[in-house]
């Protein structure tokens, strides 16, 4: 994969479209700093995350990047509220009153069962917790990796609205990846990831180590 230049301005909401395996997730992980590019730079709010050390990149990600995953990736054994509070504790320990922030983030998304263990929540509720966790730290950018892939069309539309609304409320740029063409109508900025692919399918793409 080779990206010459790709900008997502602050507050913009972009859809990274493309079929499965074209490198959407890899691109998203590069932006999140959980994979590193072979060369080049990735700037978030003026900071080149490729120049940061491993630990500094983790801290930067916690503070400035919120992520939503297709399978939510909530921490089992913790309640909905605790999952959101963990994000504050690890990513934004300087923000005051973490409990109140976490409760507010969940309630804004219509999630009222704060003290239920996440593994007992419905898919819709888990989605809300995952989104709340991503935006509670007031990040610069929210990255959502195939957030609708495991949902039916009606729920998919709701989920995208949820994420878009939350990102906007947090004042964050939003990048959503999806192979689902039906999402295209919701976004004005659409990036076709297939264009970054090298002519021959490269197995080395995105290998972090």
């Amino acid at each position: 994969m080779e990206v010459a230049r790709l900008d997502v301005p602050a507050g913009e909401q972009a859809l990274f479209a493309g079929s499965s395996g074209c490198g959407k997730s890899t691109l998203l992980h590069l932006i999140a700093g959980i994979e590193t590019p072979e060369s080049g730079s990735i700037l978030i709010g003026g900071t080149d995350i490729c120049a940061l050390s491993g630990g500094a990149r983790d801290t930067f990600r916690g503070r400035h990047v919120g992520m939503v995953f297709q399978t939510f990736q909530l921490l089992h054994g913790f309640t909905a509220l605790e999952n959101v509070m963990l994000s504050l504790m690890l990513g934004a320990p300087t923000l005051d009153r973490p409990r109140i922030r976490a409760e507010a983030a969940l309630e804004r998304l219509g999630m009222l069962e704060l003290h239920a263990p996440v593994e007992r929540l419905s898919v819709g509720q888990q989605q809300r917790v995952a989104v709340a966790r991503a935006v509670v730290t007031e990040p610069s950018v929210v990255l959502a990796d195939e957030p609708t892939a495991s949902l039916d069309p009606a729920n998919a539309a709701t989920a995208v609205e949820l994420i878009r609304g939350a990102a906007q409320a947090a004042g964050a740029a939003l990048i959503v990846t999806s192979h689902d063409p039906s999402l295209r109508s919701a976004f004005t900025r659409i990036v076709d990831v297939a264009q970054f692919g090298l002519p021959a399918p490269a197995p080395r793409v995105g290998a972090a180590r």
């Binding site: 999140a32 959980i34 491993g54 630990g55 983790d58 801290t59 990600r61 916690g62 503070r63 992520m67 990736q73 909530l74 921490l75 963990l86 994000s87 690890l90 990513g91 934004a92 966790r133």
Partner: peptide, 9 residues
């Protein structure tokens, strides 16, 4: 997950 949320290695 902890790493994504900002915990260092």
């Amino acid at each position: 997950i902890l790493r994504v949320l900002g915990a260092s290695a």
